[in-house]
Design a protein around this nucleic acid. Structure first.
Lengths: 278, 278
DNA sequence: CTTGGCTGGTTGTCAGACAACCCGATAATA
DNA sequence: TATTATCGGGTTGTCTGACAACCAGCCAAG
């Protein structure tokens, strides 16, 4: 059998939003008394949950109810299989799913652990959603501006000497490490993440850091040319000073300015390499 | 063997944030030249990706690059196994993981499809992250206020006759359906969701609707007593009028007021049933 | 005190089997 | 002709058994 293009068929592209259609076993439309497109309750296709899905839910329930706490070693797959009265494959599918989500972590020869939920989970899941959505840089930037500007404002209000020292240390490391591309990028990330953390709301921090990762992921890292590095450092300095002074309004303005300019720079860089769109 | 409490052991609770510790094979701390807690590059435990994980990434890549489009029927597990040169179990684990995330949908006897990404995916993944994070209602409300207030502002600026009519229809349905608890709740949700959609940024809409779901999920639905229903409708009306008038500032203020009051009400209801905490 | 090997247990991966199910086509029926 | 029953091939759901890779803990040798 020759090489097939790793794809079977492709159904028509236009569907109702959010609904992958069943393959239309009923040939005729049968559109007598079709339900309102927005009606609250109409007959929808029944769906029996699969076993693995139920196991996933059961495990999630165990974690949410606090019976399994972060860091715990959960029972072995064999025992879970015996306890849930299903085969090990089923357990494995469930555990594996949760591992991909970042809820569990399986270690060969050791066992599976409940992962710390320190917002890394949230950003992990968030990242998946964002990764597979449409690539709309504009939307992403909007969200980033909204969230990070608010973070800056709060950080200025809630700053402590300790967190401030940490932020300045990161800024200094950024100045020192301009020759190492990766290190510079990491520092840039860290700067924003630390501000989000100073704001004291983990969800903000998750969203902010995730968006940062996504942007860098969609648009590869030829972004930092030397001149941009200098500008970035300068803008960061202004933000840090405003936060250090406890001036919420200034911090807000500085962050807003920085993010908008950064988005503009990114767009310009991307436009410059437009021909190689892929 | 008698009934064991479905739990093996429980390691110490306090860890470094975000790091599930390896089981400390090295007994002594070995803290000579311990790396800076923030040093950019120190030796970190290597981790070989597992096969299923690689398949997951490969499939995600196929979708992101547009080779598999939403609605497509992907090759059967058997063929994927042959093509990736791995066993069917491995493929199944990968597909199952993506199904839990909401990226794929497997249908018995039919095949597996790439699901429509209409932001439902984002909120699906986002929901998982939020569900398993700590239950911090305050953080959640903060995010909700930030996002939805901005949505209201944008909605007022970008409203159309069509979207406005739809919003008013939802509001009216809310007034009519006060005796049906579920229906009222659905309308409340729809009202906020529609405003988020009017703002024209799908990420906003996802975050907003997800947070709404989570709040309702954490704190079950004894929330709407008749009086609260009236208040809710009144506040919604104010918001809708501001948006209808295209007054961004008023819409913003009205939404902010509504959300804060709603959070307050929710907290009060929860406090009233404090004794039954669990 | 370190090193090395052994052992029991755990996850990773595979292959094969069968059940439940769907779809499309064909045959039987009214 | 139009409707219904039945069948066959293909697909996912689930189970079982097996083996490899790996790890923590223990114990003895150095």
């Amino acid at each position: 059998m020759p090489d097939m293009p790793l794809q079977r068929k492709s159904r028509e592209a236009a569907h109702l939003p959010g609904q992958t259609p069943r393959p239309a076993a009923a040939k005729r439309a049968r559109d007598q008394h079709a339900p309102q497109d927005d009606g609250a309750d109409y007959i929808r296709p029944v769906s029996r949950a699969t076993l693995a899905q139920e196991i996933v839910d059961a495990i999630a329930e165990l974690i949410m109810s606090g019976i399994w706490k972060p860091g715990d070693l959960i029972p072995s797959e064999k025992e879970l299989a015996a306890r849930f009265q299903v085969g090990r494959s089923t357990i494995r599918e469930a555990v594996k799913s949760l591992a991909v989500l970042g809820v569990l972590e399986a270690r060969v020869g050791e066992g599976s652990y409940v992962r710390e939920t320190n917002s890394e989970l949230l950003s992990g899941a968030f990242k998946w959603g964002l990764l597979l959505s449409e690539r709309n840089l504009g939307d992403l930037v909007d969200v980033r501006v909204l969230v990070e500007v608010e973070c800056a404002r709060r950080a200025a209000a809630a700053r402590t000497d300790q967190s401030m020292a940490r932020l300045l240390r990161t800024l200094q490391e950024m100045r020192d490490g301009q020759d190492n591309q990766r290190r510079f990028m990491a520092c840039d990330n860290a700067f924003h993440t630390q501000i989000a953390e100073m704001a004291g709301n983990r969800i903000f921090a998750s969203i902010g850091s995730t968006i940062q990762v996504i942007v860098r992921l969609w648009y590869p890292a030829t972004y930092y040319v030397p001149k941009i590095k200098g500008t970035t450092i300068a803008e960061h300095t202004v933000i840090a000073e405003a936060i250090g002074a406890g001036d919420a309004e200034a911090a807000r303005a500085a962050m807003r300015c920085h993010l908008l300019k950064a988005a503009d720079r990114l767009e310009r860089v991307m436009a410059g390499r437009r021909p190689a769109a892929g």
